[in-house]
């Protein structure tokens, strides 16, 4: 499978990465090189093979559903690029 330029633009938008028109042909070439490389997986008969979900068989650790941490709003917003009080500030989302 290979991607066309419209698909490159669509993927970039899904990934929330702005791309310029000049970048599109170059990205298309690189993505197609990788897709051509992974194409060889189609040689293998995978019928009936379980897809791996956990690399080592393990039971998920559980803990009590109780609050174990908190009261640290200053730490949580310490790296915010823009803040108002203890809130993250973003451009207006709802009109």
């Amino acid at each position: 499978m290979s991607v066309d330029q419209a698909t490159v633009r669509r993927i970039a938008h899904l990934a929330r990465i702005a791309v310029t028109e000049e970048e599109v042909p170059h990205l298309q070439g690189e993505l197609n090189a990788i897709l051509a490389f992974v194409e060889q997986l189609n040689e293998v008969d995978v019928s009936g093979v379980e897809p791996m979900t956990s690399v080592t068989p393990m039971a998920m650790k559980k803990r009590q559903d109780v609050v174990t941490d908190g009261g640290i709003p200053e730490q949580i917003i310490a790296n915010a690029p823009e803040r108002e009080g203890h809130f993250f500030a973003v451009p207006k989302v709802v009109e």
Partner: peptide, 30 residues
């Protein structure tokens, strides 16, 4: 990083998930 995010976004996108991601995880089992 941008290239890999885009490849990842593509292989997980609707219509391609089984052909790429599920198949890769089956290979991983093998």
């Amino acid at each position: 990083v941008r290239r890999r995010i885009m490849i990842g976004t593509y292989v997980l996108s609707a219509g391609y998930y089984d052909a790429y991601y599920v198949r890769a995880q089956q290979l991983r089992t093998l």
